[in-house]
Simulated scan of single mutants.
Amino acid sequence: MAPLSLQLAVLYAALGAALAAAALILISLVAFVTARDMPPLHRHEGERFFLDARGRKEALPSLGDPPSKRLSVVVPSYNEEKRLPVMMDEALGYLEERQTHGSDKVRVVTLVKNRGKGGAVKMGVFSSRGERILMADADGATRFADVEKLEKGLEGLRPWPDRMAIACGSRAHLQEESIAQRSYFRTLLMYGFHFLVWFLCVRGVRDTQCGFKLLTREAASRTFSSLHVERWAFDVELLYIAQRLRIPIAEVAVAWTEVEGSKLVPFWSWLQMGKDLLLIRLRYVTGAWRLAPAGKAE
């Protein structure tokens, strides 16, 4: 007969496993019950138009329309009076050099309601005219000319299945330098977040959060049509959707510089993103969230 201590150890292990299983089931049930339907791309009346150079209202295009430009750039912005002008000067200066036709460089879509960063990017993507769509952050932390690196990364993925491909800017090559400049606590948070991304959602992409991403029009349509998360973790769901759809993804090293003024609060923002990662995984696994069918653009 096994010693009493061994029996107790086995009993505690079984009890612990049962509690863990019960907790997982409970969390999955909560994730399923609290899951929202995909946020509809409802445009308020003021979001259906933009003002042209003469101050006249002009209807915004749809992602379902044929492309009329080579490249569209989507820049989400909220209270960015200081950083956005610097970023726009750099971007417009670069685009001016490579633009061969057309004069309407900037269209401002003013959102009636704060939709979060993911919701703002989604609105911009669905109002784009380009064959390729670039996401870029308003802080200008990434050198805009590195879009050429993303284009090369995109071309390196050919042949594109159903004309879909994504190139992600990456700061992973700067990780050692960033660790040296961070506190131990922030470094721990960073490693914990990266582990959760790898364990729960996206594998093969070391830096999911860099805001510099280039998508073909078809890839943007398929991924953003299924996007649910509207906060900071939307990048992770975007790439999770892309991997489920087997859209090829290239990760490309880009030049990046820390710019003051970030709205992310390290602990609370990362805690929120960690919760979002768990819910993304559970809601797709339980069927609470599903991928939008092909051909649904808006």
Rank of each mutant, 00 (worst) to 15 (best):
M190F: 09
A35K: 13
A250V: 08
L11P: 03
K263G: 12
A294R: 15
E177C: 03
P85N: 10
L215T: 01
E230N: 14
R290N: 11
F193G: 03
G156A: 02
L196M: 13
L24I: 03
L277R: 01
L71T: 02
G274P: 03
M190R: 14
A180Y: 00
R186I: 09
H42N: 15
T208A: 11
S68V: 13
R246V: 05
P161C: 04
A292W: 00
I280N: 02
V112Q: 14
P161E: 08
V205M: 03
R132E: 04
R158G: 10
K57M: 09
P161Y: 08
E230V: 13
L41E: 14
D89Y: 05
T34D: 07
K149D: 11
F32Q: 10
Y184A: 15
W270Q: 14
G130I: 07
I166C: 04
R70L: 09
L245H: 10
A219L: 11
G211Q: 09
L15T: 10
A255R: 15
A288Y: 09
S128L: 00
P76R: 12
A220Q: 07
G140S: 11
S269V: 05
L282M: 12
F224Y: 13
R56T: 09
G119E: 06
H44K: 10
G204K: 07
G64I: 08
H173E: 11
Y184K: 14
R281I: 01
A13Y: 12
D146Q: 10
R143Q: 09
R132T: 01
R107W: 02
L11A: 15
E96R: 12
V121P: 00
A145P: 00
G93A: 09
R206L: 08
K296Y: 12
G124P: 09
G295I: 04
G16F: 10
A59Y: 11
L154H: 01
M135Q: 11
E155Q: 07
E218Q: 14
C168L: 06
G204T: 07
T286V: 04
W289S: 02
L189M: 12
R217S: 05
Y12C: 15
P248V: 01
V254Q: 04
P293W: 06
L63V: 03
P293F: 04
M273R: 06
V73K: 04
E151V: 08
T142S: 12
G130M: 09
V202P: 03
F126V: 07
A35C: 14
T110P: 00
A138W: 05
R203I: 03
V147D: 05
H173K: 09
W232M: 12
F144K: 11
E45P: 02
E155M: 05
E155L: 08
V73N: 05
F144T: 10
T216L: 06
L214C: 04
V10T: 11
W256T: 04
R158N: 06
I247K: 05
V74K: 00
A91F: 00
M123P: 01
R158K: 15
D162W: 03
I241G: 01
L19P: 01
A145M: 06
L6I: 11
T187R: 14
H101I: 04
R48D: 06
A35Y: 12
G204R: 07
L41P: 07
R115K: 12
L63N: 03
V197D: 09
S221P: 00
E218R: 10
G287S: 12
E260K: 15
M164R: 15
C201L: 07
V202R: 01
L200M: 11
K69Y: 06
F185C: 10
R246A: 13
P293V: 05
